[in-house]
Nucleic acid binder design. Structure first.
Lengths: 147, 147
DNA sequence: TTTAATCTTGAGAATAAGTTTCAAATTAAA
DNA sequence: TTTAATTTGAAACTTATTCTCAAGATTAAA
């Protein structure tokens, strides 16, 4: 069984367990998202669906995203200009973004140790952590050299 | 000379260097912000100013904030419900925010080890780190118990 | 101190992401 | 099927932030 159909099956379960109804719109949106290899926002996702001939509405996209976040398939990675960007989580750990304040480039790393420490800190505070954003603002190598 | 008047003097210099004009509105806003001991958003700041009898407009508050960020006196610390929250930078270490997605409460800690590790990671990537945002989203103790 | 050029202001209109409303359509259980 | 409950699309709504513009303030020079 493919990874995608495995996830689709799990999502159906998740929806049912919540006493909700499994609809073709929800499945379409999930499947489209699983194809994305990069960050995406609602508009991009909606446009991709429309171009494929899907009749799904933007409202449904907005309504489905929180479900997918709750189910753990996607996470919000950053906000920019009052727009939220998401990405597929899968088993990827939330990662660190380095944002250069000069050239606006975004680089990323995954630091397992840091991830663990963050989980610990959350638990010390009696929080049930779901996800996190770590953005480091600074100046990248290229800009420092004046490239 | 007090810390506040020192900053006010520096800000005036900053404004002049940029070829802008130093106005009473800009000074009022800066002074009010310097009094804040906690996170604030534009609305809170605007309300505080109005209660004191200030005639400053919300538009001016919105226009002044980017200048204060650029000058380094304040920084955006997180966004919630499409609203930005700021705090006075001074020499405070960037800290971690725990944001409860249910009750919207924000708690914070400072973790020196985490701060160091973040600096290290940045240097490994050849970045010159200036500041960072670490936001952990989850469910707080109270909400988990259903209070 | 007057002038003139430029910038900033307040008020309200505009913008745009995200949410809500509601009638019609779909789902799911009996 | 029948029926109750949920979901959908479309459009209206909400709300933070930005923009517009005429009137007022600041600045440097005369």
């Amino acid at each position: 069984m493919s990874v995608t159909s495995e996830i689709v099956k799990d999502f159906k379960n998740f929806i049912k367990k919540k006493g909700l109804k499994y609809t073709s719109e929800r499945e379409e949106i999930l499947k489209e998202i699983l194809k994305s290899k990069q960050h995406f926002d609602v508009d991009e996702l909606y446009m991709k669906l429309r171009k494929k001939g899907s009749k799904v509405s933007k409202a449904s996209v907005y309504r489905t995203i929180p479900l997918l976040v709750e189910a753990g398939y996607i996470q919000e990675v950053y906000k920019q200009d009052s727009r939220s960007y998401y990405e597929v989580t899968l088993d990827k750990l939330p990662h660190i973004h380095f944002i250069c304040i000069k050239c606006k480039s975004v680089d990323e790393i995954i630091d397992d140790y840091l991830a663990e420490r963050i989980q610990e800190e959350a638990k010390n505070k009696n929080y049930t952590p779901l996800t996190y954003h770590l953005e480091i603002f600074g100046i990248c190598h290229k800009c420092k050299k004046g490239v």
